[in-house]
Nucleic acid binder design. Structure first.
Lengths: 212, 212
DNA sequence: CCGCATCCTCATGGATACTG
DNA sequence: CAGTATCCATGAGGATGCGG
């Protein structure tokens, strides 16, 4: 683990556990269910194997992750402890905060549809109370994933198996923002029409222009 | 800024902006109001001056922080943009998650009463809806800070000025947990009686024992 | 003083090879 | 498959300097 901040502050102590690089992304993967080492590697493109092993050890020592026998045979599966699963809240909160960063689209970044299982509930659970239930379909490479948000919660219907590497457009993310009640239709219409023009998107989301 | 994760995922993109060391702590400081460079240094014990300057530049370029003329003369003040201020949610969420880490007490860590202005609203806003308003007094080194939580929000009455460096005990944090409805009295009573015994605290918070 | 920039040392991250 | 070992690049931490 990296050096302590030396502050008696909840945020600082939380960051000493989950603030290191990759740590929250590991938790994101485990929020979708227990996983083997290899599955984690695949869900975390770019992570060095020694780093992943080290982080899993840190998180286990901190009480966030536990290793237990996998279903099949004597292999090992990693899973969140009860306390670790409570990181769902901070993670969803960060996802909600990040929507302006998603508008420009994926660019060269990889996209995994499973991540929608974390992102979409986060966006739709931010809706104002009293809204009726909503169903949203997300199409990726011709396949559709369905998601239903009711006052009781959000249900994600997993895609129909198989490997699925695709891209999702900025318009889709704007749509999610609208569905979540985070954006106003009038504010955002010009951004959609201009299809990714950074100025318009920035204005719609009331983001200041980036200098340089 | 550190290397991109290269993932089209809200969490990953958020962490590319606020995931670097010190960044969320800088935002924490600015959540209490605009601040000068020197004030930030003082509120972030241990930060290297070149790092702080670099992080402020990163956060400004990302649209989280803006620099503007200070009230007096031609000095510079740092403040959160509207978007940056929305990090209050993720931060409060992390503070709520961190309560088990606060129970063992400050140890050798520094404590600044101003941080309570972020931590206490976070803990008390986690209360179940329908609770009536609550008033909590926090005594630090003989001085008392008052805080009132109503259904409309949480109001913090600042301490009466002057430099104030003190410590706050584990019992106080447990009390906050009770007031926030996050802990059950019966579960936690033994932890208080044993006054910091790690086993009991761990049991009360249902934390797994840390190996090694 | 305040607001940084430079320089240096050492810890951490990243990529690849290797092993039980 | 599930990691460990190794090596290099990068970033953090600390002291100091410098212009306004």
């Amino acid at each position: 683990m990296s050096k302590s901040y030396g502050q008696y502050c909840g945020l600082a102590r939380a960051l000493e556990i989950v603030g290191d690089r990759w740590n929250l992304l590991i938790v994101r993967e485990l929020l979708m269910g227990p996983a083997r080492y290899r599955e984690l590697r695949d869900g975390l493109p770019g992570v060095a194997t020694n780093l992943l092993a080290g982080r899993l050890r840190d998180l286990e020592a901190a009480g966030v992750v536990e290793r237990r026998p996998a279903l099949d045979g004597n292999a090992i599966a990693y899973a969140l402890t009860a306390w670790g699963a409570e990181l769902k809240d901070p993670i969803e909160s960060l996802v909600r905060w990040s929507t302006p960063l998603m508008v420009p689209g994926p660019g060269g970044d990889v996209f995994r549809p499973e991540w929608l299982g974390v992102a979409l509930p986060a966006l739709l659970s931010g809706r104002a109370p009293g809204d009726t239930s909503t169903t949203v379909g997300v199409t990726v490479d011709g396949r559709t994933m369905q998601l239903r948000a009711t006052p009781d919660g959000v249900e994600v219907l997993p895609h129909d198996g198989g490997e699925l590497d695709g891209t999702i457009g900025a318009e889709a993310m704007v749509l999610f923002g609208l569905a979540a009640g985070m954006l106003d239709l009038d504010d955002v219409r010009s951004a959609i029409e201009l299809d990714g023009d950074e100025e318009a998107v920035r204005a719609a989301f009331r983001l200041p222009a980036r200098p340089q």
